[in-house]
Design a protein around this nucleic acid. Structure first.
Length: 491
RNA sequence: GGCGGCAUAGCCAAGUGGUAAGGCAGAGGCCUGCAAAGCCUUUAUUCCCCGGUUCGAAUCCGGGUGCCGCCUCCA
């Protein structure tokens, strides 16, 4: 049973067959660190995080590299604007990115290399290309000659001839072909610069990925990922550089995630509708954001709306609501698999198998989430009928619970203990308003008294008052508890 | 002009030849003093339109319509 992935290079789903059986080497383009990361970055990063986790869960030995682009025109411009050095600026946004990653419950890649730490490797590749005749130097700049490289355009499905008709770039007169791109740039005074055979300069846009992937994953590796927009020119150029330099195939599978729209509009500077991760995770539970991001196929466009987020948040509430019903039946949380080898969840139960079937089909998380909800509903039904203790003691049901936990680990959700989750949500409700737990408990007590006295009008009045504070009461057999209302954790 | 994608209920969204997952919202019910949560039932004779292939198509083929992305920095 193999995993099928959609390979941009061939425009179809193919069985994933790593070059070395059992091992997967994966490179994903990380951010250019000149500004805060937005929800689009979040999607890319979460999608590949889930792919990484899934491949690991399926037993692959995965080596995952995600770089930082810490030198580039945008960084230089921004640093100049702010009166900072490029290094300071990059450092600031790298730290911010790491904070975002933690808040999104991301698993760290095995390696997160920086472009500026690989200058000698970059120079080496440019030199190879120059020596092989694929590159030419002009005034300290070094260009890649796309017409020399016959494979150019194979990833994006373009032909040089077709593109020239639609080109609308100011063509640098020094270029042999308008699509030649710079691999090494002569530095202007005040810009970061490194010594090179062509004079003091810095790397161009695409070369760093060729250099770092080759260094850490080899000249040929298995998976290369990134956002759809990187297909052209970034990834096309990476292929050209790497394959021309090393004379062997570059990445074997190319995976690209789709874009996010905001209320059906493209995110753009002019519309001012960029949603930053750091702001989103203050409003929504990070796992709700993940659930939203994984709620449709990674290659499809995804529309961010307040309503979609509310739905994701209430879906997450439902999942944690289920966990809350069973948490008391276990000595430890998360529950541990039974040690009986026969019942071992090594290969998982039926639910896990079904989840894998969905994920094997090009990482169909939307289908996988459907299976998750279906199973939770079914278990809730059993709990309604038999009680949580009886259900959790049944091996078949226990296996399903373990499967659910396993699915949660792949999707990066349900990572908190349910008490912790609800406490966190409650805390957010309190923090967003000028009320405290004690006040609520007083109200709950007052309502209990009213109910005891059969003064239901008063009881309902109190409940409505709390509802006005986004607080919902639940009368349980063992007393009344309160929960947050809608999924927004901050007003 | 070139390349690519998408069109499934009120909304979101799976489903690539065998008779429409799942979520949200809605309706009815169980439970409850009433709620909430949970559960049950219900909500597309039908998958943008028109042809074709087939015993059989949302799924394949041809044509049409509509929407979108990329070709320029962008996840």
């Amino acid at each position: 049973m193999s995993i099928y992935v959609y390979n941009t290079l061939d425009r179809c789903k193919e069985p994933l067959e790593p070059a070395v059986p059992g091992k997967i080497r994966m490179y994903v383009c990380g951010p250019t660190v000149y500004d805060s990361c937005h929800i689009g970055h979040a999607r890319s990063v979460v999608v590949f995080d889930v792919i990484y986790r899934y491949l690991c869960a399926r037993g692959y030995d995965v080596y995952y590299v995600r770089n930082f682009t810490d030198i580039d025109d945008k960084i230089i411009n921004r640093a100049n604007e702010l009166g900072m050095t490029c290094e300071e600026l990059a450092g600031k946004y790298i730290r911010e990115f790491q904070t975002d990653m933690v808040s999104l419950n991301m698993q760290a890649p095995d390696l997160e290399p920086l472009a500026t730490r690989h200058i000698s490797q970059i120079i080496r590749i440019v030199k190879i290309l120059e020596d092989k005749g694929y590159a030419y130097a002009v005034d300290g700049d070094v260009f890649f000659a796309v017409e020399k490289w016959l494979g150019y355009g194979k990833l994006s499905g373009r032909r040089l001839a077709d593109m020239e008709a639609g080109a609308r770039v100011d063509v640098d007169a020094r270029k042999q072909s308008p699509f030649d791109f710079v691999m090494w740039k002569a530095s202007k005074p005040g810009e970061p610069a490194w010594e090179s055979p062509w004079g003091r300069g810095r790397p161009g846009w695409h070369i760093e990925c060729s250099a770092m992937s080759a260094q850490y994953l080899g000249e040929t590796f298995d998976i290369h990922g990134g956002g759809k927009d990187l297909i052209f020119p970034h990834h096309e150029n990476e292929i050209a550089q790497s394959e021309a330099a090393f004379g062997k195939p570059f990445a074997r599978y190319w995976i690209h995630n789709g874009f996010i729209n905001i209320n059906q509009e493209k995110m753009s500077k002019s519309l001012g509708n960029f949603l930053m991760i750091k702001d989103l995770v203050r409003i929504w539970h990070p796992e709700a954001l993940r659930l939203f991001l994984l709620s449709n196929h990674y290659r499809s466009p995804l529309d961010y709306t307040e309503q979609a987020m509310r739905e994701a948040a209430s879906g997450l509430d439902k999942l944690y609501g289920f966990l809350d019903r069973i948490v008391g039946c276990f000595d430890v949380w998360p529950p541990e698999p039974v040690s009986d080898p026969a019942a071992s969840a090594q290969s998982g139960g039926e639910i896990w198998q079904r989840f894998c079937e969905a994920m094997d089909d090009d990482f169909n998380t939307a289908r996988g989430i459907g299976i998750l909800f279906e199973t939770v509903r079914s278990l809730n039904r059993e709990i309604d009928r038999q009680g949580a203790d009886a259900v959790t003691r049944q091996p078949a049901q226990f296996t399903r619970i373990m499967d659910i936990m396993g699915i949660g680990r792949v999707l990066g959700i349900m990572a908190e203990a349910p008490q912790q989750y609800f406490a966190r949500q409650k805390h957010a409700v309190l923090a967003s308003q000028d009320i405290d737990e004690e006040w609520i408990q007083e109200k709950i007590h007052e309502r209990a008294e009213a109910r005891k006295a059969k003064d239901f009008a008063r009881a309902d009045q109190i409940r409505d008052e709390l509802k006005g504070h986004n607080i919902i009461l639940e009368d349980r057999p063992d007393g009344t508890i309160w929960k947050h209302g809608d999924g927004k954790t901050q007003v």
